[in-house]
Design a protein around this nucleic acid. Structure first.
Lengths: 342, 342
DNA sequence: GCGTAAATGAAGTACGTACCTCAAGTCAAC
DNA sequence: GTTGACTTGAGGTACGTACTTCATTTACGC
């Protein structure tokens, strides 16, 4: 009652191992009727190819690339660590993962890098980059070249050939909205929304989701227009100072981008009103510390290790033309409070 | 620049393949000095054993067993589905998982089942059962027999040889406490705590964590003693009726066990005060529906698929005497609101 | 029925590791 | 210096699949 092998399959189909091999690997030179016979036998004896052995025989290492932004914030750091760890723990899956970095505000540069990838060197790419026409075209080109692509963290809705690994940012924004609505109790006042840039689709979607819920559940609260820091500490400090001085009735702050260390620093320096609810994205050493010392109330995050492993599994499956277990690949929107911090 | 193989390792260590094999598989008959030389070489050339090939060569299927309670509630159903799914998706890992069921209130029966497992048939067991001396002894016996054991969902702190796969229930209770404290706003009143039985260690720990946070963050709220339903619908209805009638100032309800369909039904029938915050455990079809229709406010859950896969990985690693990636095995306490429901 | 092309089979090597056997080596105690 | 125990090496087979080569069979048009 052991698992059937290709040998059993050959016997069941009444053909030789060579023919089984031809069918399994879609090689030419087999009559359609014979192909069908083998297909039938596969179903009958419930044959599943031993991919470990197959890959061993192929002696192929799947070379995957993560394209990441070239600035070094905490979130990117976590991703890099997760990639390094995955490279270790998934070694027996015959994957070799490397990282390529590009300035996220230079679509041409990103496109150039993607366009130079050839299917001889690379089997798959996970792309974390803002949505631009250049990147979209590059993804189509990669697809045409037979290189597997997933979009990573940043959704590229116009790139149909690439599966998206990340959270639904609209839902993430809604989640923050719900927490903000409830954590502020019955208090009235204003909500500040800060982000690095509203150019990013992620920010737009989060904002959209956030507004929907705030309008529905907390009409008592006024949500201010998004303020952009452009990642500039001086500008950030100025914005925060002005906002907090002119708005004495702040009851909540939503930090919409990841790695808002400068922003938190500015808020702490300026001093927010007592009981101000502060919610932001991504669990990092910094946000972890903020949860512990109480300067933040909640963090919405996605499991970085899961993101990376999921991307790798999907790329590998795509490169091998194999199906995947979809349920394992859904990235959850996690709510972290001080009490359930991992 | 390929990945080093045992052959490369043999050359690097200046020994033969046979000796490398003896060292790698901890076989006897190698001088300590030689062992050390090979160990050094492993580090030097950064050798990692190709587990896929190793398992192929071993041609061993790891037979794992999940011991589950024999009553069929929604949570157990989810676990069974997850096990079936894992059996499919981890087939290439050479694991075969089966389920054995036992009445969770009959420790002798459970112990008897565990004691009949022999290391010839079974390589590992994941045990979901209440903590009892009988089970604890059985676990020790399994360990002595060389069968890998993890405790699953229910912590058995006295069984040192078994790794625990599940959440910290104390922290889970604290998390519920924090949500309850915040979701009730500034309102004053009483909190009901309902569970199937306080005999279960899980319930005790959740309660402990819950009380800690409530005392600290919501002293305005009175937390009532835990009420036990014993899984009896009639009793449940009576308890809920009495509690809600005699306590007009209920502002929150904590449902501490999983699968509280009867309890929710009784609450809905009796009618809780407007704005009563209801929080419970485990995301199931029922709690999912409750979140959507607003009859529940939050659900604390653990990823069942993750629980199962983690158990399998750990058992398999233990059976193979291999290290694991700890970070991948930590089960998170997930907070689910309507907005971030997966 | 003959020639040709297409389909199929038989048998091999390879992947990286496990595990076995047997021979040959080393070393220390006597 | 012999004995015996321990250590090491050499070489084999096996796991399930990929891929190749070459021989053989089948099908079809004439």
């Amino acid at each position: 009652m052991d698992k059937p092998t290709t040998k059993d399959l050959a016997k069941a189909a009444g053909v030789s191992l060579a023919t089984v091999d031809r069918v399994l690997n879609a090689r030419a030179g087999v009559r359609p009727a014979t192909v069908e016979r083998v297909r039938q036998a596969i179903k009958e004896i419930d044959f599943v190819r031993d991919m470990a052995a197959a890959n061993l025989a192929r002696n192929k290492v799947y070379r995957l690339v993560f394209l990441l932004p070239d600035h070094d914030d905490e979130f990117i750091g976590l991703i890099r660590n997760a990639i390094a760890e995955a490279n270790m723990s998934m070694a027996h899956e015959r994957v070799n993962v490397s990282i390529v970095r590009a300035p996220s505000n230079d679509p041409h540069r990103i496109a150039k890098i993607l366009n130079t990838l050839s299917s001889e060197q690379i089997d798959g790419v996970a792309i974390m980059a803002p949505e631009t026409p250049q990147v979209r075209d590059s993804i189509a080109r990669l697809d045409a070249k037979g290189i597997a692509v997933v979009t990573f963290v940043s959704h590229q809705p116009t790139a149909e050939s690439a599966y998206f690994v990340g959270i639904n940012n609209r839902a993430a924004g809604r989640t923050v909205g719900q927490l903000m609505a409830r954590f502020t109790g019955e208090r009235k006042g204003e909500i500040l929304v800060l982000t690095e840039t509203m150019q990013a689709r992620d920010s737009q979607e989060r904002r959209l989701g956030f507004d929907t819920i705030m309008a529905k559940y907390a009409p008592r609260l006024g949500v201010r227009p998004s303020m952009e820091t452009y990642g500039d500490p001086a500008r950030t400090a100025k914005i925060v100072k002005t906002a907090l001085e002119s708005q004495p009735s702040i009851v909540g702050i939503y930090l919409m981008n990841h790695d808002f260390r400068d922003t938190m620093h500015a808020i702490e320096k300026q001093g927010a009103p007592q009981q101000t609810i502060i919610i932001g994205h991504e669990l990092t050493p910094h946000t972890r510390a903020c949860l512990i010392d109480g300067s933040m109330d909640a963090v919405i995050t996605q499991d970085v290790g899961h993101l990376v492993r999921s991307s790798i599994r999907l790329l590998r499956a795509k490169a091998t033309h194999v199906d995947t277990v979809a349920s394992q690949e859904r990235i959850r929107i996690e709510i972290i409070l001080r009490e359930n911090m991992p």
